[in-house]
Structure formats: structure tokens, C-alpha cells
Amino acid sequence: MKLQTLKSIIEKKKNKSEFAIITNLSNGESEIFEKDKSLSKEMQIYSNQINEFFKLKKNGVIENSEIFVETYVLPIKVIVVGAVHIAQYLVDFSKSLNFEISIIDPRGYFASEQRFPDMKIINKWPDEAFKEIETNENTALIALTHDPKIDDPALQHALKKKFYYIGALGSKKTHENRCQRLKEAGFSGEQINSIHGPIGIKLGGRSAPEIALSIIAQLVSETYKK
């Protein structure tokens, strides 16, 4: 691989663009494939197969050829509501994973630069904050404040936008009350049941890093279910 290709791959990852690397295994020549960009002459005959790999987000060697396709998948957007202690560990754990965390918290004293260095924190109420973030069915929500004023609007947004993972912190009782409020707000039983509450898989731990680990574990598991 040419150093120049390596550098542009890193650049494209930084810019969050979707692409694939196409390598000719017989001579080591590689190029970058993007959706609306044409391939080099010698790769054009494989155009259909390359597009197919790209669409399915698959890596592999094209059958009966010496062409290897490696697809780069965009990081998964994870919205955390509540710049609380658990959120600090979620940020830590997600560093080695393909999750891109944004934190929403209208309470300035929680969402400080000192508590979350180098993190994008939106210091607004969820309704306002979601105007700044593009979300869809590939987005995840982790609601951590267990304060209805802050969590509920975020949960409602996530349900309407059909986030693939929605989790909310709080005891069974807190969650029952939450479900009741969402029912009164007009959400269906199926929608409400899609919320993971109490959040996380059962690990037994109660400290902030242990709860963060149980949440991340659930998020990873739900990510691969889709």
C-alpha cells in the first residue's frame, strides 16, 4: 500500500466518510472506492461486485479474482443524556470501540470541560440539542439522568426516530413510572417495551464503571442483533 493511500484512508475515517479499499493481491496496488467516484480502468470490470460488497458492508476476495475489498463502516452515533459519573466511564470504554458519543446535559455544572476533556457536550435541553444532531434508526440513546424533565423528551425523540437501541437508567419502580408517562404521551406498548430499562445487562456491580460496562455490553450485543 502506498503511504499516500494510507494517509487518505486515515483522513477519510476522520471525516466520517464511507469508503472501501480495493487491493489487487497480485501486485499489491490499492485504491480507494467511494460511492460516486469512478474506479481505475483495471478495476472497472469488477465494479458490480465491488458495489455489492460496499452495499452489504462486507470484506472479502471477489470470487475467481485476486481483488480484495475492505469496507469501512461509519462509527455508530450514541447519544448520552446526562453528563454524570457513569457517562465518564462510557466515554472511556467507547474509545476502543466504534461508538461516537455525544453528551447532552442542560446542567452546566455537570457538563464541564474539566469532567469531560475533549468531548462534545451539548449544554442544552434535549429538544433543543436534537436540532443539532442528525439521528436515525442507526442511532443509540443512553438516558442517565433518571430525571423525567431531562430524560423523557430524549426518550420520546428516540422512540419517534426509531433508534435501534434505547436504554434508560433507573430502578424498576422508576422505570414503571416512566413507562406510564410515555403511555399517557401516546406511545404504544410495543414502543415502550423496546426501551431497555433498567438499563444494562446483569453483571451485579453497582459502581459507576461497572454500570457503564453493563450498558456498553448491552449496546454491543444489540448492535450485532440488527
Binding site: 494510507l6 484512508i9 466504534n98 448492535t223
Partner: peptide
């Protein structure tokens, strides 16, 4: 299909070259 793991290995390769 999503992928929840991002290998930062090419970034590291670039650091080594540098």
C-alpha cells in the same frame, strides 16, 4: 450490519512510518 469495533491499526502504522 454494524460494526462496534474500530481498529485504529492504520493510524498506528502511519505513526510508525512517521
Amino acid at each position: 450490519m454494524k460494526n462496534s469495533f474500530d481498529e485504529k491499526i492504520l493510524e498506528e502504522a502511519n505513526d510508525w512510518v512517521n
